[in-house]
Design a protein around this nucleic acid. Structure first.
Lengths: 195, 195, 195, 195
DNA sequence: CATGAATGAGCCTTCATTCAT
DNA sequence: AATGAATGAAGGCTCATTCAT
């Protein structure tokens, strides 16, 4: 039998991230992904049921990583809630630091991932949200975070802000350093923009 | 494209917003838009060159409106920069207050709008950005806004946060009132989350 | 609007019968059917949901015709059961007399027709069988048909014999006249082969 | 194609009969046949040139058996023509008695067997037909069979009837015993259905 | 001989766009 | 202007067959 050299599944995922980032999910052609992965078109289907399953796997990996990290973060006793949110922000920048194409996919293709309950990414996502809200609530209860902040509203705003920053950075990395973005998020989130 | 009584162009745009919001640009069928607009499929092409042109027009209208509003806002002398940013935030919530479907299209389909230079929306968008940055810079110069804030980073963060909030609100309007969202953005932006 | 000339649905069915007869259902290409019908490939799908639906329609028409005919035959009072069976045999030969390709499809593609309950052909087929068995049972009860004949076995044998005859005739019409076949079926069925 | 212990060629043929019977030739997947035969997909091609060759072999074996049997039958002097036809009918029922799946393949997939002259099954088939017609002609000449019977028409009718009976029996063996079918064929063929 | 991963030709189907009326 | 039937390019996916091991 022919033995697989390397990891074809990973090759396909990497190729798909590139093609999805460049063309968007709907304009991404399977044969382009296969070409980029250095395999034949049909071989894609040895590893993934269909085009959507590739995108699902990308998000499964991503949200799995995000959930794993926030889960550990939540349990730490050595830092307070504000520092945990600081680390949470770092988390996003670190994950995408060397992967601008992944950032573009993360931000723009979430809408195309299947929301069927069989998706593992959805579970990770839900748990991530739970842990994130828990960190915030904990901060409010402990008096370090403004109790007037609505947890859900904060989540939307922070995540949305991060996503849009990452997307813009990824599309033109020279325009603005990722670290400037990181610092500004933290600054605004913690202190607002008043001088 | 002559516009008759009943304004079919507007009918098509309204229909397209509904269908784009529900299915996404790539899964939106022209015949569904036509059906929703109460005209025949082929008639869509009397008013728009193609599917993309419909989306372009939606964004042209939107960014035109946004530019118009920020332009006026910028020139006001009766309020300071912080209040102008306050009004800017209001602007977004007000525009989409009764148009959740338009919010969904605004947030999710920006990526599908042609970036060719012939697009009027792009000009409005650029000018909107210019005016927005001017308001912020002005605030910094006048000492009311923290000078450590990077103008571009702030723009990405605020717009991203607003977009994501609006998207989530639009998809489940009962979950969180739009005014809670509005208040929280302002609170966070101005004061941060520290208690 | 473009007005249909002739009857495209009928054109497609005729074309499909030709292509199915020549290549079999699974080797029949939609573009070949379209070509034969004088239309574009995509136009086939204006009239039929998919390839299978074309075959279904062919069988719906056929069994509808057969059911209609046997239904009338059953109710006749002017002829006895034996004559009804005689007419039943005629029925098959008459239907396919000028349509050898249809005969080939009828015999060979029945197996590829969907047996889902939504198929109208199935209802016609079931009713045809009911009426056929009724005619035979009636003949037995009235003493004109040998009571040792099993109704179902007879049905299988007669229909199978007719089908195979028609198939062979259709594939080589010069080899044996359809009327010789017709006479022989009747002869054998009624009297057997003993001299 | 060397045959080893366990006779993989036979295993493949048995597996193929099952899969062909269940799904039909065109919906039968090679990997399913291999799976059922307990070998790897690629190994099928060590024993058969391609999918069609498997079907050819099935028919070669079948028609070889049928030819062999009719050949012996033809030469017998101890029974008359009518009894030979009786035995001929038995022949079909006996061959498929314990092999309903083979019956289904025999009846439905004949159309998919290659008719290229290189097929051994075709020779057996032709010789079978010759011998069968000879038996009938002999019966006519000896006055035991009705001389009005057309030999070819009789062949079509009998074989068609038998095929269809076997197919229906194989698909629902509980509905009607194979022996009832057998008796009815003989009854009808010999005496007709008149009472 | 045996394996099963890899290949890639091939086709059904969709749907944005066109155009005869 | 309006219609909607007709078009046909395009691509996701299947699976018989191959071949490196």
């Amino acid at each position: 039998m022919r033995v697989r050299e390397g990891n074809k599944e990973a090759d396909i995922l990497d190729a798909a991230i590139k093609v999805f980032a460049k063309n968007g999910f709907h304009n991404a052609k399977i044969y382009k992904i296969a070409e980029s992965a250095g395999i034949a078109t049909g071989s894609v289907y040895l590893y993934f049921k269909n085009k959507e399953a590739i995108l699902n796997k990308i998000f499964e990996n991503l949200w799995g990583q995000l959930y794993q990290a926030i889960s550990e973060l939540k349990q730490r006793n050595d830092i307070n809630s504000i520092d945990k949110i600081d680390q949470l922000i770092n988390l996003f920048f670190n994950i995408f630091y060397n992967k601008p194409e992944l950032a573009i996919v993360f931000v723009n293709e979430q809408i195309n991932v299947s929301h069927k309950k069989d998706g593992l990414w959805l579970k990770y996502n839900e748990r991530f949200i739970e842990d994130g809200e828990e960190i915030l609530t904990d901060g409010i209860n402990k008096g370090v975070i403004n109790p007037n902040i609505n947890v859900k509203a904060f989540r939307y705003f922070l995540l949305g802000g991060l996503r849009y920053m990452l997307d813009n950075w990824a599309k033109d990395q020279k325009a603005l350093s990722i670290n400037i973005l990181r610092q500004n998020v933290k600054l605004i989130i913690k202190n607002g923009i008043l001088s």
